[in-house]
Write a protein that binds this DNA or RNA. Structure first.
Ligand code: MN
Ligand code: MN
Ligand code: ZN
Ligand code: ZN
Lengths: 136, 136
DNA sequence: CCGGGAGTTAGACAAAGTCCAGATTGCTGA
DNA sequence: TCAGCAATCTGGACTTTGTCTAACTCCCGG
């Protein structure tokens, strides 16, 4: 298994993150599933096993992962942030009824005709979210 | 002035909304400015004048406007929702440092190569957000 | 061993938003 | 005119998501 707990320490180190027990568990929750998880979901997953991890540590760790570029943030639900272990360029499909969030490969998506940026500004990212609903 | 208080009643009626005093004030706050406002900002604006409007009414009214298609929601800041009086198709430029949010006309923007939707799904909207930061 | 820095923790706190039961408002029909 | 009624509004309690802090634990080098 590529994203086994054992491999998490190396992954963390390669992103300049000191691998502690809690950080390994949190990384494993995200990377073994390859899903978009909220902080709450991460905490629930990590704490079903053993050794309780505190809320503060979950939030601290997710923020650290974000700063170090290990995960990315997806802002799509007005009430919570999702953390995304997939940092390659991609877009999102959001089912508004169910809250289900899935990836859209950026490879074949073309965005053209954007106006030039205001001077002194640099693009940090372009988020494309396709909001869908079940027909009815 | 096109978006005077006097014209708000008609605008509300044309969207099947019973124009009450509070609803007119809230619509006026949004439409006279043509800006993206949070619920908090709306409440602050409405209450600088007279006749306090309660938090519950601000939230209820904004949700009603949303359902009736009078305004749209912009989800871009993880901590609060912005309400947008511009319901024509357009995209957004978000300055992550300052929180400043501005419109990008959709007219010349082309998005191509999106994969087909899952069966039984219909697109509710496509949100494109360009996140920018001041060079430094 | 011991000291110190990095990491973790409980729990208080804050901000955004929801909910509810009671008060107000503004019609309407007698 | 005005009582009755439905729609709307309200204060305030509550929930959820996230932040902060001061104390505690862990671990490593000397
Ligand atoms: Mn708000
Ligand atoms: Mn929040
Ligand atoms: Zn993703
Ligand atoms: Zn807009």
């Amino acid at each position: 298994m590529y994203y086994s707990r054992d491999n998490m320490a190396g992954l963390l180190r390669s992103h300049d993150i000191n691998p502690t027990h809690q950080r390994i568990e949190i990384a494993h929750a995200l990377f073994s599933r390859q899903e978009h998880l909220s902080a709450d979901q991460v905490m629930a997953i990590v704490n079903t096993r053993h050794s309780e991890t505190s809320k503060a540590t979950v939030y601290n760790t997710l923020k650290l992962f974000l700063e170090k570029g290990l995960v990315r943030e997806v802002i799509v639900d007005p009430s919570k942030v999702f953390f995304d272990p997939n940092t390659s360029p991609h877009h999102h499909l959001y089912e508004v009824d169910t809250g289900k969030l899935s990836d859209i490969d950026a490879e074949h998506v073309q965005i053209s005709g954007l106006p030039p940026l205001p001077a002194g500004m640099v693009t940090e990212g372009i988020d494309l979210i396709v909001r869908v609903r079940r027909t009815g």
